[in-house]
């Protein structure tokens, strides 16, 4: 049976538009410029103050000296950065796995939430300064206490992010999947897990910075090698320039890890860019 063709409203035929006229490189430079300027100004002010402000270099070394010393001691710094990276990543991996497991359990059995959350919140009130030496005392100078401390500072934010992410699933999607005949597992896998992705990445960005700090704290409390113990030794030898050099390395490390999470998010959530591309002209 022939059916009259149905006209569709004009706005309907517009498709996905090719996005981004500018080249990616020039837009990246444009985005990095403000940060470069502010960092440059900060360093310039610091350099001037250290040189002409009458402070001794053993109190506040100029950035030029910090960079110079960092370069001269680059082998020692790298040598100490590697255990820190290892502790950060190992601790973070453990914490992520645990957070994933427990958040999924809480999602399936919400009453677990009331059992776990008070404990977890309490764990976040433990001062790292006090707990780090104890953990080292109990578990020695190896990798384990570092993993535990990194996990201690990153588990909770990841767990909360995931639990909230699962709960952010659109109610209608759940109802529709149920009507399609999906069981709880199916709903979790098809809807709740992907719904949690934005929350997961927000948590990831925060936690990864905590993770580096946690690892350094653990090393500070006792380690054979690592940026934390390097800082402690440099301080005890009245070498603030080397302390700051190590701080610079840890900052660079944090930035790289942060950048990786952003990159990872882009790859994992390609639809986000499509949504951003439509922007204000999006649907009503």
């Amino acid at each position: 049976m022939a059916v009259p063709s149905v006209p569709l409203s004009g706005g309907d035929t517009s498709g996905p538009s090719p996005r981004g006229g500018r080249s990616a490189v020039s837009s990246a430079i444009a985005r990095a410029a403000p940060a470069a300027v502010s960092v440059g100004l900060l360093f310039a002010a610091w350099e001037l103050y250290a040189r002409y402000g009458g402070v001794r270099p053993t109190v506040l070394p100029a950035p030029s000296r910090v960079f110079g010393q960092a370069w001269e001691n680059r082998e020692a710094l790298m040598d100490n950065a590697i255990p820190t990276i290892r502790a950060t990543l190992a601790g973070f991996a453990c914490s992520l796995s645990a957070a994933f497991l427990f958040s999924a359990l809480v999602d399936f059995w919400p009453s677990l939430r009331r059992a776990l959350f008070p404990l977890l919140i309490a764990s976040q009130t433990l001062p790292l300064v006090a707990i780090a030496p104890l953990v080292v005392l109990w578990f020695g100078f190896g990798l384990l206490p570092k993993i535990l401390l990194v996990a201690l500072v990153t588990f909770f934010p990841m767990m909360v992010a995931l639990v909230e992410g699962f709960e952010a699933t659109e109610k209608e999607i759940g109802q529709m999947l149920r009507a399609m005949g999906a069981g709880r597992w199916r709903v979790f896998w098809l809807a709740r897990l992907p719904s949690a992705l934005p929350y997961f990445f927000a948590g990831l960005r925060i936690s990864i910075t905590y993770a580096v700090v946690g690892a350094i704290f653990a090393e500070y409390a006792g380690a054979a090698k690592g940026l934390g113990i390097y800082m402690l030794n440099a301080k005890n030898n009245f070498r603030p320039d080397l302390v700051l050099a190590a701080v610079g390395v840890s900052a660079a490390l944090t930035l790289v890890l942060f950048g990786l999470t952003v990159l990872f998010q882009r790859l994992a959530m390609p639809w986000e860019r499509a949504a951003a591309g439509r922007g204000s002209e999006g649907r009503q």
């Binding site: 659109e170 209608e172 999607i173 109802q175 529709m176 999947l177 149920r178 009507a179 399609m180 005949g181 999906a182 199916r186 098809l190 809807a191 992907p194 992705l197 959530m269 639809w271 949504a275």
Partner: peptide, 29 residues
């Protein structure tokens, strides 16, 4: 599960699936 094809009040398209994969969702389930 077996009688109705249900379209909820909001379109409930999954933002993380392409249109084709959204369309096949019910069959996949």
């Amino acid at each position: 599960g077996s009688r109705f094809a249900f379209m909820p009040q909001r379109d409930a398209l999954m933002p993380w699936r392409r249109i084709l994969d959204n369309a096949t969702l019910g069959l996949e389930v």
